[in-house]
Design a protein around this nucleic acid. Structure first.
Lengths: 219, 219
DNA sequence: ACCTGAACACCGTTCAAGT
DNA sequence: ACCTGAACACCGTTCAAGT
């Protein structure tokens, strides 16, 4: 896949890392495997990344770069907020196994900064003072990252058959609990293991965050 | 520290792992180091844990065991909900570097199940149908885990001087941004890097979650 | 049942050397 | 400037063996 004009393009390395993590999980992302994929010695990577951590950070930044910020608009702040958060989640959704890497990169990578600033702007428009907007925005964004990270079946192999198998097992485990002690858990095992619709899962998550923000908004 | 009556007590191994993770971070938790701490061969651990993952899961379960569930009461559902979530957060707060391990253990370890059931019960009392309560409860709990995981300075060395130094650097980085492009971020750099009060940080986090739940509550 | 010892495959990383 | 090669310290884990 990588072209060899410049022998080793850091952006291409990050792309391979993302692909690897998506399909085999973050543990499969190894300097040695990446080197192998690019037909190069492991050491060659150190010319472009100071560290493995540096590479993982670049991977997080790579995800943030996918954010498509909504156009500025004159709509009510709450609607703009929802748009912003939805756009953010949309960027992470394709990569649940990697999404967690963005947690520490929001206030460092440029696209993260851009989104944070815009989100805070919306909150200030909504009546929050800047410091309050900062805290509320920060926590809301972290919650949404976790929403993606804990998407049902997020950790599993993306292969449909393996995924189904894993979910079946989890469901069975929950259903096997004592219904006297855990009536609600056993009664909702299907929902707990895997919500009926992934889209609903995400829109509920965003609803919760937006409603929370509305609820703590100063009068 | 470990007594040697039974040569190797899995509970003591988990305790060492927790201590190690708290002070040096999760990366320092190594089968070999744990073995060394207990004056035993690395292989001896495999008699008690099938895997490293198995040990990390036990570590997550260890945290959940610290939850002190509030007494059942007749107070309004929202107040009971806040009590429950506060108790949950209180158990994780002392261990921000490890808290993330509970994400996958809530519906497996017994104390997690207990808390989840009780939380759902409160939500049902509040007017949620069981399946809705399941989804809302799940997401809220995950949000609170992340609240602990992303507590400012969570990843850092717990040593006060090193921690202060790390925070100072982060603050400087944020403050150095272009205030024309990022007026709100630069203006609230102190708050973003480290909220004025840790207690306030957590109570805001819980407020956000509770307000979100109230906001999506069916009429 | 519980622990040891030696070995294997695989990490991230260093250092000196090549071009 | 960019990559190689050999080496180091450290992983998790297997297998066979001890008691």
């Amino acid at each position: 896949m990588p072209t060899l004009t410049k022998r080793l393009d850091p952006a291409q390395v990050v792309d391979s890392a993302l692909e690897l993590a998506d399909t085999e999980g973050l543990d499969a992302v190894t300097l040695r495997r990446l080197a192998q994929l690019h037909e190069v010695t492991p050491m060659a990577l150190y010319r472009h990344f100071s560290d493995k951590l540096d590479l993982l950070n670049a991977l997080g930044d790579r995800l943030l770069a996918d954010i498509e910020l909504p156009e500025p608009s004159e709509r009510p702040w709450e609607e703009r907020l929802r748009q912003m958060l939805t756009a953010f989640v949309a960027a992470l959704r394709p990569h649940p196994r990697v999404a967690g890497l963005t947690l520490t990169r929001i206030l460092i990578a440029e696209p993260g900064l851009e989104m944070a600033e815009r989100t805070m702007e919306i909150l200030v428009d909504g009546g929050f003072d800047p410091d309050y907007a900062a805290e509320v925005g920060r926590q809301s964004i972290c919650s949404l990252i976790t929403l993606v990270t804990t998407e049902p079946g997020a950790g599993e192999d993306p292969e449909p058959s393996a995924r189904e198998q894993a979910l079946r097992l989890k469901r069975a485990t929950l259903s096997a609990l004592d219904p006297k002690r855990y009536p609600l858990i056993t009664g909702t095992a299907d929902t707990l293991v895997c919500p009926a619709s992934t889209d609903d899962y995400y829109s509920l998550g965003i609803d919760l965050v937006v409603a929370g923000i509305r609820g703590v908004r100063p009068a």
